[in-house]
Amino acid sequence: MKNSKLLSVLSVLVVVMMLLSACGTAAPAAPAEEAAKPLRVAVVMPSATTDMAFSQSMYSALVAVQKEMGGEAKMEIKYSENMFKVPDAAAALRDYASQGFDIVIGHGSQYGASIEEIAKDFPETVFAWGTDVNTFGLPNVYAYTAAAQEGGYVNGVMAAMVSQSKQIGVTGPVEVGDAKTYIDGFVQGVASVDPSITVNKTWTGSFSDVALMTEAAKTHIAAGADVLTGSSQSVVGSIGAAKENGAVMWFGTQSDQASLADKLVVASQVYDWSAMIKQIIANKAEGKLGGETFVLQLKNDGLKITFNAGYNLPAEVKAAAEAAIEGIKSGAITVEP
């Protein structure tokens, strides 16, 4: 008995020390100090700010706008991440609004009903939410969405041209939302170059199962694919699989994924929300609080194709991609979502 008591005391000590040592080196999460009434922006996101995908795209855009405006003194950003539980997100949105934030962003399509209810109670506050197109007829609500199929198409054009094996693999989570529209656009892009190329799709049924996503990518590679793409925060596993193989190319979406495999990521479709955020801020200065839907498109620079400098993209492929971008912008090419 004595022995076990000693052990138990030890175990507690070990855990405490683990906590201590691990957090000791932690960088300080400096709370933003309010000086001369900065613009206050709050954002509620379903996944982590570091997901290399949907949530990160919004958070980076906010930080970029903040930097442009002159730092924390001019613009305060508060965020709540991993709010995949809708009632929690609703509570967060309401709290931020009642704390007097100027702009409250609900960055998840599941937050619609909450936004609709809360926005009515805070007519002075600007609300923005997405991805969806519905502003509920309220004058202080913006909706936003991304025409992911457009960048998907451009990625598809490039993928078809760089593929040697004429076989392309798509690793998706669940066939909904922009995971679906991106991939539909991608398939159309491939077909526009060479209809004989086979595009095989796998769905893991989960937005977070990295292990299965990795294996899905490896399966595509074993089946002969030499180009991969995919969507959701779990595709980091697919990129890892491509990197391990060393000769398989990757096309990214949502965030710039080049940092994960700098030799193999050809290009990424990046959601750039910063123009939209700046527009919302400018509108607010003029007294307009909402009632508009933003669609990120190539045309309005909300969607950007970032070519990875580390990958040596043949000139004719890049030219074809740029032609596709121009075609979509001008309306000469239409991509069905």
Binding site: A147, V174, V176, G177, D178, T181, P337
Partner: peptide, 29 residues
Amino acid sequence: LQLMNMLVRGPLIDQAGVAAGTYLAQSEK
């Protein structure tokens, strides 16, 4: 979970999302 995925992207999907081209994983109201 998979059963829900299947229904919510199939028979139960909100037709408004289909019309708007967003294909969100939610049912009609």
